[in-house]
Amino acid sequence: MRKSQIRNPKHRTENCPLSPRLNYFRIFLTFARNSIVRDMTFRANFLIDCLSTITWSLMDLGFYIFVVFRQTSQIGRDTGWGEWEFYTFLATTKLINGLVQAFFMPNCEEVSELVRSGNFDFALLKPIDTQFLVSLRKIDWPALSHIGVGGILLSISLWHITQREIDPAQLTLLTGVAYIFYILCGVAILYSLMISLAATSIWLGRNESLYDFWFYITNFSRYPMEIYSGDVGTPLRWICTFIIPVLIVVNVPARILAQPLAAETPEARFLLFFTPAAAVACLAISRWVFYRALRSYRSASS
């Protein structure tokens, strides 16, 4: 007789009223933990990743300090984006990029590979929201160094714009809360675009254009929207605000800190309401696209 016998499970979990609820936050923490354990296994890779992120951030910053602002004192004409205001903007870009790259980028990027190899099967088998599982499975910890760089840059530039002689910026708790809120809206918009694009690989069999796409999109969103003016600029601004709302991702939160609200145009005030609505709409559409695509999943290889 073997010592261990498989007991017939009389108290099945689904019948048991005390069974713990599906706790998405806890599962997210486990994903985070597993990711960091794995990253630490390859320590050198981890350090190189962090280092290259920070180096890139510093080079990017150096370009504005030593090149752009040697030529001009403002981004655009009479836009109110002077050197320190723009650094606030740049810091906001870094914070948002850092969040998206740390949490969503590695996962969305992997969707194409999972689909091509057929390993997407496992995501569909789990008794958990598939979009959640696919979107947050891995966390790219080194990408959080963007957030570190962004945080430092933000602190320095905020100190400058609150200390300036003419019309110093007033920061209150409300501006802080609003800033975080609009950053999250921005992350939601970028995430939605990303997961929708990743979902197309289910239809197409493979779609590895995600990084390219990311580059094009962030290229537009990384400058103040005021510079998009004129015959081509205005329609572009309109499209990137209302059709693919990437322009509001960084602009809206950055304005809250860097531009006095009293001086805001009606358009900018409108965007304060439009942004959360756009974020919700984007999330809803991306969820629809994702689940629509799942219906067509073909499951490669046996």
């Binding site: 979990t13 048991c16 005390l18 069974s19 713990p20 609820r21 599906l22 706790n23 806890r26 599962i27 486990t30 994903f31 597993n34 354990v37 794995r38 296994t41 390859f42 057929g118 390993n119 099967d121 496992f122 789990k126 008794p127 958990i128 599982l133 290889s301 046996s302």
Partner: peptide, 26 residues
């Protein structure tokens, strides 16, 4: 038999713990 669902670089126990949470096993 042809596909692998466990985290490749981690001990299997870590994947099991994740399953515990996803499947809500007490």
């Amino acid at each position: 038999g042809q596909k692998n669902q466990l985290w490749w670089d981690l001990p299997a126990l870590e994947s099991f713990r994740l399953h515990q949470q996803i499947y809500r096993i007490e």
